[in-house]
Simulated scan of single mutants.
Amino acid sequence: MSTSTSTLIASTQSEPLQAVLRAPLQAAPELVAPEPEHCPGPESEQAGKGDACDGCPNQQICASAPKGPDPDIPIITERLAGVRHKLLVLSGKGGVGKSTFSALLAQAFSSPPRAANGEQPSASAPAPTVGLMDTDLCGPSIPRMVLGPDAAKTSIHTTASGWSPVWASDTLALMSIQFMLPDQDAAVIWRGPKKNGLIKRFLKDVEWGDLDLLVVDTPPGTSDEHLSVNSFLTASGVDGAVLVTTPQEVALLDVRRELDFCRKAGIRVLGVVENMAGFVCPNCRGESEIFRASTGGAKRFCEVENVPFLGSVPLDPRIGMACDFGESFLDAFPESPAAQRVEDVVRQLRETIGLEARVANP
């Protein structure tokens, strides 16, 4: 590690941790050149002062940029005034099926509640109105999972009052950077400040309207996107987070870091879901262990960390097929053990955040 890099890291870590987590993010100033490799970010208290700033054309701009409370926070709070509940889906590990599970959660929440035995709800049962916000800006897969191939032909409409979300159904609205890209294969090659700016626009400029629930799908890790979502939503309130993992210890290592992030950031952990816990054969409905829980899996993890265990969802190959075609796996295969366990998770979350009372008494 170079001297300048180690100095920068040391100066950044010298800031009080709670101050970093709680600091409202400012709008990024207009820069005259790209940020250097180790740029602390124009919104950082170290902007214009670190070793990486020496000789940068942006140094004076960053040093003089305002660092006070973000004036957009009240605007975001007002915009989200009609959103009754907000739920984050987190995982420190990539590849655990977090985005897939976010899509399943949103589809389940936006459908009339099913009975505990998996029976179809009555036609008169009310369904909540749900928004699904995709903050995985470099891997926006939510549109394809919910809309199928039509996602590539879908774009955002702009009105006088802001951006209109894409409605996948009468009760499910989506927002993703994928709707803004020229094609579905276009890469998003952005630094942190630009990512923060788009997440702010998803909250400030999108006409979410009256929603019973907003589900926020986040990328792996505990960095820019997570800090942005937490900072922007602090004033309007977040009900909590669901952590997604797979059974093996390698995945649980990163989930422990995500849990530590939630505790330091003051985010309530609603529970942990163990995804892909076994394989369900569509023909015989038998289950086989794919990822061995060498240290006890998510259930043991929850017992040790004293957080709720929401359940294990087995791997069903039809989930991937349904996501490829943009169909609801829960509606197409309600008899699947995976579908029934997702519904179990949703029932627990409804009760925990108080959404059940809202649905029963609209």
Rank of each mutant, 00 (worst) to 15 (best):
A152Y: 01
L25E: 10
S141E: 07
L243M: 15
V83H: 10
L8D: 07
G48V: 01
E289I: 11
A65V: 02
A116N: 03
R300F: 06
V89W: 03
C138A: 14
E351F: 07
Q184N: 05
Q60S: 11
N230W: 01
S236V: 11
V304E: 15
D72S: 12
S4G: 02
P57W: 06
V206L: 02
C56P: 12
Q46C: 01
E351H: 09
P66V: 08
A293P: 14
K67S: 05
P337L: 15
L17T: 13
P74I: 14
L252E: 05
E305G: 04
V307F: 08
L214G: 12
P282Q: 00
Q340S: 06
K98Y: 12
S141A: 14
L270H: 03
T129P: 00
A81P: 00
A332V: 09
P140A: 02
E335A: 11
G148T: 09
V272N: 08
L17Q: 11
I189N: 05
A116P: 00
P140E: 03
F291R: 07
Q120G: 05
P247H: 07
F329Y: 14
S164C: 03
Q26R: 14
A127Y: 10
Q46R: 02
A357T: 14
V229I: 13
C62A: 13
S6M: 07
P24C: 11
T100M: 01
G95L: 06
H157Y: 14
T7A: 15
P140T: 04
V359N: 02
A235T: 06
P126V: 02
G266Y: 06
L355N: 00
V307A: 05
P219Y: 06
Q120N: 09
R318D: 10
G139Y: 09
I319E: 06
E351C: 02
L213W: 11
F109R: 06
V342G: 07
V345A: 02
G55E: 04
G296R: 07
G82D: 01
R84M: 12
I9W: 09
S102F: 13
D150K: 15
W208A: 03
I156R: 09
P113A: 08
P193H: 12
P42R: 14
V96P: 00
T77Q: 04
L87N: 04
L243I: 15
N117I: 15
P42N: 13
R79P: 03
W163M: 13
F333C: 09
E343H: 04
R257C: 08
F329L: 12
F179E: 01
S155Q: 10
R292G: 11
N361I: 01
K194E: 03
A187W: 04
A168R: 10
V255K: 13
V166L: 04
E225K: 08
A10V: 01
